[in-house]
């Protein structure tokens, strides 16, 4: 789970954090696409290097580094499958590098954008508010539900529950004392939130105003320009025959 830390928003005040989520999303998507279409080691290294610069601008290198330990597991899987199914150490390395470039391109985006920002970018893109609101709420409540899970698990362990014990069927059965209280709590919370939203007139008027309207600033134009150049550069490299 520790690699998930690379995607958890941290409140910071940096140039990257201040960017409009839409332009960040654009750049992140393009970086992702480029990582997927190239296997050339120079391109992939350049991608990783460029994102390290982005991450350090966002003062998030530490989070990214600590998540690498979690990625090690996936690297191991890649190498193992490559060696098993006729690949070489080199292809294993290239694929790992690509995974690193891919995950970094999402990492800096999620590390520097609040769930609200992402939700707003989605609704500006034309998605209905019910959907984007559910999305931001879901992200918001992941840590809350995780804390609750921890507390429930601790409580049941204090009553002698041992999840690691017994065969497969036993282990599944042993999950019930943890899952049921978690489910009951979550469903109950859902109703409470629905009530809280209703008393504050969510959905009462079809037209919503925005407290903080999204606005593109000079940095965003820079990012968009960089994205365009990146696309052009990628196309040019492909024309040169670089895979």
């Amino acid at each position: 789970m520790s690699f998930l830390r690379a995607f958890k928003y941290r409140r910071k005040d940096t140039a990257v954090h201040r960017l409009d989520p839409r332009s960040k999303f654009l750049l992140s998507t393009i970086l992702m696409a480029v990582s997927i279409v190239f296997t050339d080691i120079r391109v992939l290294l350049a991608l990783v290097f460029g994102q390290i610069i982005l991450l350090s601008l966002a003062e998030s290198l530490r989070e990214w580094l600590s998540s690498l330990r979690g990625l090690l597991f996936f690297f191991a899987v890649i190498f193992a499958t490559q060696l098993l199914f006729g690949g070489t150490l080199y292809t294993g390395f290239i694929l790992s590098l690509r995974l690193l470039a891919l995950s970094s391109s999402m990492s800096w985006f999620f590390l520097s954008s609040t769930p609200e920002d992402i939700g707003r970018a989605m609704s500006v893109a034309g998605l209905p508010i019910e959907l984007t609101f559910s999305f931001t709420m879901a992200i918001r409540f992941i840590p809350v539900i995780y804390d609750e899970f921890q507390s429930i698990y601790d409580t049941q362990r204090s009553r002698g529950l041992e999840l690691e014990k017994g065969g497969f069927r036993n282990r599944i059965r042993n999950l019930m004392p943890v899952l049921i209280p978690l489910l009951v709590g979550t469903i109950r919370r859902t109703y409470e939130i629905a009530d809280a939203m209703e008393v504050r007139a969510f959905g009462a008027s079809p037209k919503r105003t925005t407290f903080k309207p999204l606005r593109l600033k000079s940095g965003d134009y820079l990012v968009c320009a960089a994205s365009a150049i990146l696309v052009a550069l990628a196309a040019y490299l492909k024309l040169l025959g670089i895979e």
Binding site: E148, S151, T155, R159, M176, P177, P181, G185
Partner: peptide, 22 residues
Amino acid sequence: LSVAKIARKIGFVNHNPEHQFF
């Protein structure tokens, strides 16, 4: 010591009873 081993001697009651009912 495992948590279960200790729990046999030292009981712990969570502040929220609903975290244990199933």
